[in-house]
């Protein structure tokens, strides 16, 4: 069963169409990440899923219910991109208060400890950006939700906090919790998400597991020395485009598989360069940039 089912969604702000015929399905227990440039329609889509905005067209079901159904309020945990928490209260007071709105919340001290908030006794407004994000995540979890909707939850977090977050999300996925989130860190989700939906100009332009998207990305390789690419083009044959984009940085475009990557490595070493001189890169970020035409995040 789909935890989230969005069909032909259209949302406009006056004359500007922010979401234009968007389709998205997220299976229960999976983690779906929305990637897209600023203004692509990610946050607007989340707003509709949360019932904060009424769509101009299309249908949306969340856990089988319309997004505005009051029954969802105890089943959905939320991290909003901007604010959302009382700025004068301490993290502990905030987590305890939100827990008090549920009949059987998680033990608040467990949530506080797990998110590393136990020593933060300053008001929320005096916390760093990463600390505020951790408080928001704690609040989103404390009511034992079945679905998490997280808008850029790792913004401002240091690498250690991000690792804690992703480990936590893995655990929750194993317990059947569904997550729909946005991020501007494609490479950190490439090994964590079950599904990546790339949104551009208000519509989903790619929707697949991360590895499938990575496989569509061009391969980049760098070499400490200048390379004459003529013979490499002959090695790779038809359907591949090889170019030196900037000195020492080369791009191979086409359906590059494991065999082609191996061929590139062999070609470089056969031309007198050590394999240590060469770094071959293929990433979700490259796939994303390719799909969105290099639009800014």
């Amino acid at each position: 069963m789909s935890a989230i089912d969005v069909r032909s969604l259209v949302v406009s702000y006056g004359p500007r169409t922010a979401v234009d015929g968007l389709d998205l399905r997220v299976e229960e227990g999976s983690t779906c990440v929305l990637l897209g440039p600023n203004g692509a329609g990610k946050t607007t889509t989340l707003s509709v899923v949360l019932g904060l905005r009424t769509p101009d067209a299309g249908t949306v079901r969340v856990l089988g219910l319309p997004p505005t159904d009051v029954g969802l309020r105890s089943q959905v945990g939320v991290v909003l991109q901007d604010g959302g928490l009382p700025v004068a209260a301490t993290p502990r007071a905030i987590v305890r208060h939100f827990a008090s709105l549920y009949a059987d919340p998680l033990p608040t001290e467990d949530v506080i400890e797990r998110l590393g908030l136990e020593h933060l006794d300053r008001p929320y407004r005096r916390l760093s950006g990463g600390e505020q994000q951790r408080v928001k995540i704690a609040v989103s979890l404390v009511g034992r939700p079945r679905l998490l909707v997280l808008d850029e939850p790792t913004t401002g977090m240091d690498p250690a906090a991000r690792r804690v977050f992703w480990t936590l999300l893995d655990e929750l996925g194993q317990q059947g919790v569904t997550t729909l989130m946005t991020t501007h860190q494609p490479d950190e989700v490439s090994t964590r998400a079950d599904q990546i939906a790339v949104i551009n100009h208000g519509t989903v332009i790619a929707d697949a597991p991360p590895q499938e998207l990575i496989d569509t990305a061009p391969v980049w390789f760098t070499c400490a020395r200048h390379l004459d690419l003529t013979s490499l083009r002959q090695v790779l044959g038809e359907g591949f485009e090889v170019a030196e984009v900037e000195p020492g940085r080369y791009r191979v475009h086409g359906e590059v598989g494991v065999a082609e990557v191996s061929a590139i490595n062999s070609w470089v070493t056969s031309h007198g360069h050590s394999s240590q001189d060469v770094t071959v890169v293929r990433s979700l970020e490259e796939a994303y940039l390719e799909m969105t035409g290099g639009a800014a995040w």
């Binding site: 979890l141 079945r146 919790v177």
Partner: peptide, 12 residues
């Protein structure tokens, strides 16, 4: 600490 979300919670 492990957070157990396998069972949901009703609202207060």
């Amino acid at each position: 600490v492990t957070l157990d979300l396998s069972q949901g919670s009703a609202p207060a």
